[in-house]
């Protein structure tokens, strides 16, 4: 459900950037980085983005979502690994881990087309 409010934020940002780029600029694609801990469902996000973009300058742009894996580091033995299941402790020493990646929620790039000569 949070995909809709996220999609609205993305559309606002895209419009802001397009405003800076010129009156005829339009978005071709929009690339997001989303950490797996964020529980964003890509299909739901794409659907919400399409709906939120209707009637805006982001309408019709393709949403590309790069999912970022959850990387953790053991605070005791310093090992790093990618979490495949949600077990936030070290399998070797049972120690606590710090999260290195997986919480990202980032508008990376916008591909823009500008007809103006």
């Amino acid at each position: 459900m949070h995909e809709m409010s996220l999609a609205c934020t993305v559309v606002e940002e895209v419009e802001r950037v397009l405003d800076e780029c010129g009156p005829k600029a339009r978005a071709i694609s929009v690339r997001l980085e989303v950490g797996r801990l964020r529980a964003v469902v890509p299909e739901a996000m794409e659907f919400c983005f399409e709906a939120a973009a209707l009637g805006t300058r982001a309408e019709g742009a393709r949403l590309i979502i790069d999912q970022i894996p959850i990387r953790v580091r053991c605070e005791t033995c310093d090992d790093e690994w990618t979490l495949e299941s949600v077990e936030f402790f070290c399998p070797a020493c049972d120690g606590g881990v710090s999260v290195l990646s997986g919480k990202e929620l980032l508008l990376r790039t916008i591909e823009i087309e500008d007809d103006e000569e």
Binding site: T9, V10, E13, V17, L105, L106, L107, T109, E111
Partner: peptide, 11 residues
């Protein structure tokens, strides 16, 4: 013209 703009903005 097509151009990729680096926005890098935390939502």
């Amino acid at each position: 013209r097509r151009d990729e703009v680096d926005v890098h903005r935390h939502l």
